[in-house]
Structure formats: C-alpha cells, structure tokens
C-alpha cells in the first residue's frame, strides 16, 4: 500500500556547505525524517514560482519553520527585529489559502503556524521579548547562536484546552522546545487551544471546520515526540483512501 505523499514547504536560502556558497532549495532533514518516520513520503515544495497546481498531487502538507512573516500581510508596520522572506511569504500564503479551501490536511510548524494564522485573517506579535519581558521562547542567554542545536532551544510547558482536538492528540500538558521571536496574537478564523502558562503566548491553533488543520509553535520535528506528524499522516491517508493499518496509534 502506498504511503501518503506529504509536501513540505522549503527554504530558498543562501547556504554554505563543503566549498559551496550558493542559493539552494532546502529543508533540514529533521523535518524529512519526521515525515518518513510516521509513515509518509516527503517531497519539498520550493517557493520560487508561486502557483498552487502542485497541491493536486499531495495527500497532506507541512508548512515549515523559517523567517518572519511580513507584517504587511496583516497591515502592520515592521518591527526593527523583523526579518522577512518575500518569496516564501508569497508562495506559502497562496498555498495555505488553497490548501484550506480544498481541505487538504495541514500541519504548521513555528513559522508555518504563523502563516496559518495570518492566512486566516489573524495577526502576529512581532517581537516577543518586547511583550513578555522573558526569553522563554528563545535560546538560553549566553548561547552562541552559531552553535545553535537542540540543547540551545528554549524549553517551557504548554497547557491544552480540554475538549480540543489537540487535547485528544497530546493530552492536557506537555513540555516543548522553542525557538521563535514572533508569535500568534489574533488567530483569525482558527481556535487557539494551547498556551505557554507563564506568559499566555499561543502555542497551538486548530480548526473545527477542517479535516485536519493544526499549527504548533514549537519544533516537534527535533524531538522524539512525533505525534502531530503521525496525526497528519493518518489524516492524509484517510483523505486519500489509503489503508490505515500502517499508521499505528501512538
């Protein structure tokens, strides 16, 4: 039985590797492995020539982490710390709206959750330290950003609304890793269902009107807890009429 095909939005990024310094279409392998480990087949969707035709081929889609969403998309002025990517914004806003319209199963991770909120008419906080006065959501003070790895991520609790679909999936509470300085303010047409209890920053959004549209502010792909990826693969398999037996419940 074939696996669900999961599109993943990719970075178009100037990158260094071996002796090369070039523009590449790319995505950290942690995302790819998360999809493959939960029964899907990953393909990377480059932002270079925005169109939505590729969605016809997919069973589900992940909107990946990355740079900031341009505040122009929700009518705000740009904060000095905001660092945007116009090509990704254009491509991902278009793909997100179309994926929601056709009820394609969607998982938004970090920036991907923020794209989801903005595409749904919502707004973002542009720089969390201004708002919360804490650095729970970023790397620990004194961390060398050039050596950022899993241990350098922020770490905090998330509490989840009883009765929500996220609660069914993740339970009432979990500890997450965190690496972001923007966050969802107004979730638009989505429902906020998970928060950081220390500062009430929104950590999970979901949709009651879609088969599967879930956004998480943390980075599950860099952890052993891949339940949100499993749930995406299951929703994608079910939507496309694929056998469910391979997608064992957690």
């Amino acid at each position: 039985m074939r696996r669900p095909l999961i599109g993943m939005t990719a970075y178009a990024q100037q990158v260094q590797y071996s002796n090369n310094d070039l523009m590449a279409g790319m995505l950290p392998m942690t995302y790819v492995r998360a999809v493959h480990a939960t029964g899907g087949r990953a393909v990377l969707i480059t932002p270079d020539d925005p169109d939505i035709d590729v969605l016809d081929s997919l069973d589900g889609i992940v909107f990946s982490g990355g740079g900031d969403v341009d505040p122009a998309h929700w009518g705000a002025e740009r904060h000095p710390a905001t660092d945007t990517d116009a090509a990704r914004d254009a491509s991902e806003m278009m793909l997100m709206k179309a994926a929601l319209d056709r009820d394609l199963p969607i998982l938004g991770v970090c920036r991907g959750m923020q794209v989801m909120a903005v595409a749904g008419g919502g707004t973002l906080h542009q720089h969390l330290p201004d708002l919360t006065g804490n650095e729970l959501h970023q790397a620990a003070a004194g961390t060398d950003p050039l050596a950022a790895d899993a241990a350098a991520y922020g770490r905090h609790d998330v509490v989840i609304e009883p009765g929500s679909r996220a609660h069914d999936l993740l339970g009432p509470r979990l500890v997450v890793n965190s690496f972001h300085h923007q966050a969802v303010d107004d979730p638009g047409k989505f429902t906020p269902v998970g928060w950081c209890p220390d500062d009430r920053i929104v950590e999970i959004i979901e949709s009651a009107n879609h088969t599967f549209a879930l956004g998480v502010q943390w980075h599950p792909e860099r952890t052993a807890d891949l339940r949100v990826f499993t749930a995406l693969a299951e929703a994608a398999a079910e939507r496309s009429g694929l056998a469910r037996r391979e997608f064992a419940r957690r």
Binding site: V15, Q16, Y17, M26, P28, M29
Partner: peptide, 15 residues
C-alpha cells in the same frame, strides 16, 4: 550552514 544555523543536516538542491 546559514543564518544562526551551523552544520545542520539538510536536504538541498542548488537553485
């Protein structure tokens, strides 16, 4: 390697 990220295992293709 890009931005704050250093030697991250990455799937990529030159643009």
């Amino acid at each position: 390697t890009w931005g704050v990220w250093h030697e991250v295992s990455t799937a990529l293709i030159p643009n």
